[in-house]
């Protein structure tokens, strides 16, 4: 079912009205009155923390650093670095293995681990998931386009007024990947091209400060070389992996223009 996410996201993006790009020669009127928060021409720096959700066997925490430029109210370009591992020392490489395998790993890993379902499969049922199902992103660098056609106001129990915009994002980059063997050794499974898409919303606390909640899927083709056992030959396991990250971030906005209040009949 996970493979259906990409076409669904593309269909949703196509469905969104082209009106977002249309700029009349006449003054454009916003349908919501008093749009207090404008992002046009602004730069945005964000620091995110979060975790993967929904993966059966793996669980990761990650931090992300983002840098956005808002071309206009609806479109932004983003560069980001996401990491679950800060490389310090890979440990001792095991000789003879196909992909580089290390013991006594000293890297700082922020929660790269396996779930209870993995332990249950391994210990209770004495079964083994495919090694390719265990591959995790350790560091990702990429760019993305952010499309935010929706701006909104809301009140919680009618106590106060909040402003937010909702965005969709799609992009790509490269990522390093690895997985942990049952004996505790880490295997470097290589660097891959990764596609990403997702969405989220940005809650404005001030014209220079916003909170963001971001749900983003990273898709890559994991490949694990399983070395030969005894007299048999080695095998290669491949899987399309989806890592879905739920991230919460604090963002600073600077530059750009102050918003102009535009009257609307709505």
């Amino acid at each position: 079912m996970k493979t259906t996410r990409i076409p669904v996201a593309i269909l949703c993006a196509l469905w969104l009205p082209a009106a977002a790009y249309a700029q009349s020669v006449n003054e454009r009127v916003h349908v919501l009155q008093k749009r207090d928060y404008s992002v046009k021409g602004k730069f945005e720096i964000g620091l995110f923390g979060g975790l993967t959700v929904g993966d059966v066997f793996t669980q990761q925490f990650a931090h992300t650093l983002t840098f956005d430029y808002h071309v206009n109210e609806a479109l932004a370009i983003e560069a980001l670095w996401m990491s679950s591992k800060l490389p310090f020392a890979n440990g001792t490489r095991i000789a003879g293995s196909g992909q580089a395998e290390y013991k006594d790993d000293k890297n700082f890993r922020w929660g790269e681990t396996y779930t209870g379902a993995y332990d249950q499969v391994k210990s209770d049922a004495q079964l083994s998931p495919s090694n390719a199902d265990l591959v995790m992103l350790s560091n990702y660098i990429g760019v993305a386009v952010q499309f935010s056609p929706i701006y909104g106001k809301w009140s919680l129990f009618n106590w106060g007024l909040g402003h937010a915009d909702i965005y969709l994002t799609a992009g790509g980059g490269v990522a390093t990947t690895d997985y942990r063997k049952a004996n505790g050794n880490w295997v470097d499974t290589g660097t891959y091209f990764v596609g990403s898409f997702g969405g989220g919303f940005r809650i404005f606390l001030a014209r220079w400060l916003a909170l963001r909640l971001d749900l983003r899927d990273y898709t890559f083709a994991a490949r694990v070389e399983v070395p030969a056992q005894g007299g048999g030959g080695g095998t290669v396991e491949t899987k399309i992996r989806n890592s879905l990250y739920l991230m919460f971030g604090v963002c600073l906005l600077f530059g750009g223009e102050a918003p102009v209040e535009i009257w609307s009949p709505y």
């Binding site: 969104l16 009205p17 349908v31 909104g152 106001k153 009140s155 129990f157 709505y266």
Partner: peptide, 18 residues
Amino acid sequence: PLYGKLELSSELAVSFHL
């Protein structure tokens, strides 16, 4: 608990409840 209005591409207003 939450009522709001969204504008879609500055053209269409949609009310929502969370």
